[in-house]
Design a protein around this nucleic acid. Structure first.
Lengths: 214, 214
DNA sequence: TTTTGTGAATTGCTTCACAGCA
DNA sequence: TGCTGTGAAGCAATTCACAAAA
């Protein structure tokens, strides 16, 4: 049983990176890995790595390091991705279509099993590539959430529609939203929201270039 | 002249959010905005907002607040997006195609003006929608970087190719990379790298659901 | 030896609270 | 009065450094 409370948010963010790197070590047939090796691969200190894992329990073996397959299992358990879960997506514009075609989610434990759009033009569309579902109207969302036990939704609609669609998702039973619209989504504390604003990331790079360099 | 050094990284991240929100206030015809209003819209404290701006200079007017158009200009200047700049993209898979079709970059000061891919099958392709350039082979990258004064590149290739392509971009003169591949890119300190791992964000949501709730 | 786990020290970030200006 | 800018205080996260385990 971990302390469960008082875990720094940055530590949780890094947990995902550790998992990704552990899987890379596993693919390269490393049986064990030390906090220093793991930190080096991710540009973190060895102390940081040990402290982060310590928030969740005792995973290491003194003198040995961490056993890779064991740690992968335990981190997945912590993140809740030890079993596949279903997610839905709303907004089948350019980005939405790219995201449902994107193979990377399934490898990390998330299956995109339903897509919704307001536009009747794309509803019924068999979505790009051989995908097993067709695009449905938003009105069907609550039913699909129940039938497929969906907890997470990806929001890929234009900015002006984002808050209203988010409200619809929440009312329909979605518990967490990954938002790609460049607006701040307002939701209750019991709803988890993460936002990815592609423009923001380029701005960060632009700022760094302005200061890092002459 | 700002102090220039010792600016917390979180403050720089929030600067992009302030800009986005200021533009929303501007569109709604707000002439001025207080730190409290701005903070409320972004779920931040008023003190946080004032302190963040203070890292970069004195922008506010006591008793009044911040003048919206003025602050927008100054934040853009700080981020280096007061003038449009050219960016390139490598990797015309699903995600890459969606990103070049994505209108949101131009509004924030970034024009995607060139696209590259390894696959001869897509080279020469006029890219989706009416876009003014065609996909080129990677060998052309250094020349394009020079001709179009490109400093930033978007990396949207599969994970196994990402590091090699990043090296090619850097050797070609790119100074900052926005990486969508789920790997840590190794680059010199003079190169700015930002990574967006779509799977990681879903994992964060998954973790929050596991702990927030029963 | 090697390497973890962890209290203690340190560094960094945020919030507080108020002087000063409009 | 309303609101900014900022030193000081408080809190959070990281790094240090070492006892214990293999």
């Amino acid at each position: 049983m971990p302390k469960s409370d008082n875990i720094p948010a940055p530590a949780v963010r890094r947990l995902s990176l550790y998992l990704r790197q552990l899987e890379a070590f596993h693919a390269a047939d490393h049986r064990t890995v030390s906090s220093r090796q793991l930190g080096e691969a991710l540009s973190l200190s060895d102390a940081q790595v040990r402290k982060d894992f310590a928030y969740f329990g005792q995973f290491g073996h003194p003198g040995i390091g961490y056993r890779v397959p064991e740690l992968i299992q335990r981190v997945r358990r912590i993140l809740g991705t030890d079993k596949q879960s279903n997610v839905l997506l709303v907004g089948m514009g350019n980005l939405g279509r790219a995201l449902v075609s994107f193979g990377g989610f399934a490898k990390r434990g998330f299956d995109v099993v339903a897509a919704f759009d307001r536009d009747p033009g794309v509803i019924g569309m068999k979505s790009p590539r051989p995908i097993a579902f067709s695009v449905q109207p938003l009105a069907d969302l609550p039913q699909v959430v129940k039938e497929k036990s969906i907890r997470l939704g990806i929001l890929a609609v234009p900015a002006p529609a984002a808050q209203a669609v988010a409200d619809t998702m929440i009312a329909g039973g979605v518990r967490g939203i990954l938002n790609f619209a460049p607006v701040t989504i307002q939701a209750g504390l019991e709803i988890a929201v993460a936002s990815v604003d592609l423009g923001v990331h380029l701005e960060q790079l632009s700022f760094q270039l302005g200061t890092t360099v002459s």
